[in-house]
Amino acid sequence: MSDSRPVPALPGRASLGAAAVPRLLRAILPGLALAVILVAIFILQPRAMSYFGLNLLLNLSIPIVFATLAQMFILTVGDLDLSVGGMVSFVATVSVTYLAEQPVLGVAILIGAIALYACVGALIELRRLPAIVVTLGMSFVWFGLAVLVLPSPGGRAPEWLIALMAWKPPVIPLPILAALLIAAIGHIALMTSSYGAILRGAGGNARSIARAGWSMLRVRMTLYALAGFMGVLSGLSLTGITTSADSNIALRYTLISIAGAILGGSEFVGGRVSPIGAVLGALTMTLAASFLSFLRLSPDWQIGVQGAILILVLALRALINAWSARASRRRAGTAAP
């Protein structure tokens, strides 16, 4: 391959620029939603605009961010994971019991949980089962195991975990630092690494990936293992904050993680995912809950408001899509002889 070939002027490039505008709009939509809700909170409660305020506001966001990333890895290949909440609850119960008392056994159980996730991925791939059914079944398995490990609420998280989650880094509050770090790592793993391209390609056109000689089994197992790893981190960070656990502590995480990932620009069709967007979506979902308390509304409305935000953002996205489709039709119309 010669490097000396000059890049020729490309006459057709201009028309592609038009497709980039709606894509850019879609990409900034999650950030926009977060900014809007943050500004609304600051207006209602200016004291939230401080290191301490943000820390308090976003305290519970870290486990939700991890759970959303877990969901996003599953969405990458076009599947849906209904067992995130169960898995996170299980990890939480293990971390306040085995991990605190017998660390070696505790770590082994957590590694086993990740391996089980990878096996679920293998099962779905090999038997061509619908992921939504398998993971729904697995959610009962996880919750059942969680009840076995911790029949009644209680336990105590390991001190190092509590200390880690209580850490106050200088200048930037921990939840924001964690979100930045997670977004960066997720972005590198999925969007810029060379195997990440294969993982996303598998969601876009699995047959083409298989025809190029890649193992779809390995792809699915990798993604499920990554999701399992994120689930473990979610459970650990959750118990670090709450210091004790309950067998259905993360019951709501399944739906919140789906909502957060979709809010962040992921789509159910597979292959269209965004780690940075997923982090932003998870933060938005967390803030939506706090927003209500500032409005002095009953927490009963929480799910409803989270749903309303989701619908609003999806409606905006649909509008952008319709607009870009119309624009491209118009372009095609003028281009025809």
Partner: peptide, 10 residues
């Protein structure tokens, strides 16, 4: 048999 969600380079 291209992946529509990936770029040309990918």
């Amino acid at each position: 048999s291209l992946c529509p969600n990936l770029t040309v380079a990918e």
